[in-house]
Every structure is written in C-alpha cells, then in structure tokens.
Design a protein around this nucleic acid. Structure first.
Length: 423
RNA sequence: GGAGAGGUGUCCGAGUGGCUUAAGGAGCACGCCUGGAAAGCGUGUAUAGGUUAAUCGCCUAUCGAGGGUUCGAAUCCCUCUCUCUCCGCCA
C-alpha cells in the first residue's frame, strides 16, 4: 500500500510515476472519495464527541441522584444521526480502501521503461553456455525412461504436475538441502518452517489479495484459506502487526516450501516439461531491514542467489525488470536467468525484489528506532532458487552424449555422493 | 469429536453497565538524592487516524475479531477465532 500522505499531497505525481508500470491511476475519483472521507470523518467524530460528553453527564447526574429524564430527552435523535453518518463514512472508507489497496507500488527511478520482458535490461552475464558435440536433449526426453513422469502425474492429479523417480527425485531433494545449507551456513540466514496454507489477512499483507485471487488455489473451508504461492507469504507475515527493536535488524530468513500457483491465463505457455507447474519447490530468501539499507540489501540478496548458480557452475545472466514487467508490490526487481540448453535461451530461476515500505505498510511491520520512534520496515525477498527450474538447468547443462547426467561437485555431498545419473 | 476455563498495555494483573480519563504492581527511560551504586522519591512510558505548515495541544477509535442491545459497553447478548485443562481419537 502506498503512503496515504503522499497520495493526498500529490496524486498527480503518483499517477505519472505509475504510468511506468502501465497503471492508470484515476486522480479525479481518488480526490473525490478523499474529499468525502474528510467531511464524513469530521462529522462522525464530532457526533461521537457529542454523544460521549452527554452520556457522561447522564452518568454523573445519575450518580448524584438527579433526574436524568431531561438529559435523556436532550440526547434526542443523536444516536440515529450518528448511525447514519457512521454507515456513510464506513462505506466511503471501504471504497477508498479498495481503491488504495489496488494501487501498485511506485517503481524506483532506476527502473527502465518498457512494456514486457523483452524490454528488460541485461545487467551481467556469468559463465559461458557449453558447446555440445552431440544433439542436445531437453529435460523431458533426457529423463523419459527413468526420472520425470508427467503421464502418471496427469493420472493422479492433472496437467502441470510431475512425479519424480529414483535418482532424479534424489537430486531434486539434494538441491533443496544444498541451498538451505549454503544460505544458513555461509550467508547468515535463519531457517524457518512455516504453514503451507495461509489466511486472507496474510495474503492481503504481502499483496496477493485482493487483486490476484485468480492466481491462487483457494481451499473449500469455512475460513478463507489459500495454498501459498511462495514462502514470501507465510514468512513475511510472521511479522504482521509486530514492532521489532532496531537491534534485531536485519531479519534474514531462508525457507523451503512447495509453491502452488493456478497459472490462470497461461494456458498455452510452457506446456512441455516442468518449467511451469501448479506445484513446485522453492527455497526463498526473505529480509526485513532498516529502510536506509534496503537498496544495498537488494544487491547482497541477489548475490546470495547468484552464489548458488555459481557453486553449481550453471551459466546465467541477471536482468533488471522494466516498468511493464514489474510486479504489483515491487519497487525494483532483479531476475536471475539460468541457461537452458534445451530451449537455447535463459529462463528465470530467481526474482529478487525490494518492496520498500509497500508490504510493511499493509502488514504494519515496524521497528522502534534507538530514539524511540516507530517506523515501517522495508521488506525484500528473492528465490534462492526455484528448485524445479534449477533441476531442469542441471539436467540439461550436465547431460552427456550417452544420455547420462553428471552431478556437479557441490551437490554430491547432499545427494549421497551420487556422481552420475544413468539413463 | 465432547466438556470446561480463558484472551485486558512491554509483562503480571484488577475491573459484572456510568468518579476507568483501564486501578495496582513489575520492567524500562529520565530527573532528584549519593563519593559511586542500591534503596527511596518524582516524572514519563501503547497504536492507528483526524485537525495543524509543524511541534505542543485537542478530537476519534482500539481491552482476541466482527456484529448487536443501550443515552452510555472492557463489562450484557450473538457469531467467529486463538490459548489452556480433561475425555476420546490419532502419526
């Protein structure tokens, strides 16, 4: 959520900034609602004050044994007027809230202009894609006999799911262990385990609701519950409504969860293989930091994700997302894209984002400064990394002419010393 | 699943319709006192919003959440939620 003070002070400036994100902010509608809000709030509070004062005097009169009938009469239709005004005020508040909750975060000034991912700007390239002296297989063909089993998953559940067998399942598990190990032991993150189901308040807190309900798996339950689309939701919401001491900062969490996404509206895209699944594993990095540090933290957090790709010796590049490709709550996002030989291109395995105080304001996640002031935190997160896509990259980059796949050194200790996957 | 007890500020804890403007205590901060400390004494110690150029101030809301009754609700009623105890079931 944006700062209401900023919105009120200069809505036109907000509208201009949001054009970078292809978002049309209706300044007139906002200003109109805000005017009504102001009037109605003043009226409501004035009536409440009147009621409180008069009620108190009734109490005092009663305590002194005086006749309270005239006082009761003086209250008259105050209650009714208050009721009407209150309802009107609540309605305007709801409308205004709905409007403001739907406004995306302002992009940082360094975010490049652009419509979609083709306008993203490359920042750096690491490693060189391997030159193969045989015909390259993609992960589907490579594991058709022994590893990834899409037919069975389709029988058990439906499309966009996978069953993994044997050594591929082991490698998949090893990737999770390896990443958790690296982030906790080398990068100083605290591991957390969290629920894979979260309530609507949590989804609103991190910005998945109200706007993106169609992307979520909603449970049939008496309470409004959803499967988590990323660990970002449960982990960041640990701090919803909390006030941390400045000395506790920065909070750094690493968390492995499955992620559930309905992928509504992506029917034709990435239908082959396990690039885009309804369920995938992810190791997520989440930080809650002092506002002054968040831009530095974005760089270091991205570096932590990059370290995984470097240890696995997978070629990748980093790109900064353009305005049109930037997420709802993001001020700036750096994507890491790993080389996928089967597609002869780079594909996203990590998305590292600085939300500034956008999520913190919805969450009311704050800290108390040394001076005793209470201020909003800044939140950041990034994949470190998406497991399924890393596995794809691993299989395809490390494939051999005979159809086997060698396991990179860094991963072997976590895979019971598995050195090679046989076809 | 059944029965019961609860949820009050940073913490403990009082509070069954109006001197509650949430008592009292602990903790913390500052001041006085002291050679220094402890003790003692004093002052302060929530959040969100409104008003204001801003501070002070003033106003409104918040006692798990949401409704309701009432001139007036922490207190009474309803729904939900979480915690604890006992029974049952269970990995």
């Amino acid at each position: 959520m944006l700062d209401m003070k900023v919105l009120r002070a200069d809505p036109q400036r907000v509208a201009d900034a949001l054009k970078v994100k292809n978002y049309q902010f209706d300044v007139a509608a906002f200003t109109h609602l805000e005017e009504r809000r102001k009037t109605l709030q003043a009226q409501t509070e004035q009536l409440q004050n009147e009621r409180n004062t008069k009620s108190k005097s009734i109490g005092q009169a009663k305590a002194q044994g005086e006749d309270i009938q005239p006082l009761l009469a003086a209250v008259g239709d105050l209650g009714e007027r208050l009721d009407t005004t209150k309802k009107e005020f609540a309605q305007v508040q709801d409308d205004l809230q709905a409007l403001v909750m739907g406004i995306p975060n302002l992009p940082h000034e360094s975010v490049p202009l652009g419509q979609d991912d083709s306008d993203n700007q490359q920042l750096a390239v690491w490693g060189t894609p391997r030159v193969f002296d045989f015909d390259v297989l993609d992960h589907v063909d490579l594991t058709a006999d022994s590893g990834l089993d899409f037919e069975t998953a389709a029988k058990v559940t439906g499309s966009r799911f996978v069953v993994m067998h044997g050594q591929v399942a082991r490698l998949h598990r090893a990737l999770i262990q390896f990443m958790l190990h690296k982030h906790t032991q080398t990068h100083g993150y605290n591991e957390v385990y969290v629920p894979y189901i979260a309530n609507a308040d949590s989804f609103r807190g991190t910005g998945q609701l109200p706007k993106f309900a169609q992307d979520q798996f909603k449970l049939e339950h008496e309470q409004e519950l959803y499967l988590v689309p990323t660990a970002e939701v449960p982990v960041t919401n640990i701090y919803r409504g909390e006030i941390l001491a400045e000395a506790e900062l920065p909070v750094k969490h690493v968390c492995h969860t499955p992620c559930f996404r309905s992928e509504a509206g992506s029917y034709g895209r990435d239908t082959r293989g396990m690039l885009r699944q309804h369920q995938f594993e992810k190791v997520e990095l989440v930080q809650l930091v002092h506002p002054a540090t968040s831009w530095d933290v974005l760089d270091s957090l991205t570096g932590h994700a990059e370290a995984i790709l470097q240890d696995l010796e997978l070629p990748y590049r980093s790109v900064v997302l353009c305005g049109g490709d930037l997420g709802f709550g993001a001020a700036k996002t750096i994507d890491l894209e790993v080389w996928v030989p089967g597609q002869d291109t780079y594909r996203e395995v990590s998305s590292c984002t600085n939300f500034l105080d956008f999520q913190a304001r919805r969450l009311q996640a704050r800290y108390r400064s040394a001076q005793g002031d209470i201020e909003l935190l800044h939140t950041l997160n990034g994949s470190g990394l998406a497991i399924g896509r890393t596995l794809i990259a691993l299989l395809e980059n490390y494939q051999q002419a005979d159809g086997s796949v060698s396991v990179p050194d860094a991963l072997r200790p976590f895979a019971d010393d598995l050195a090679q996957i046989k076809p």
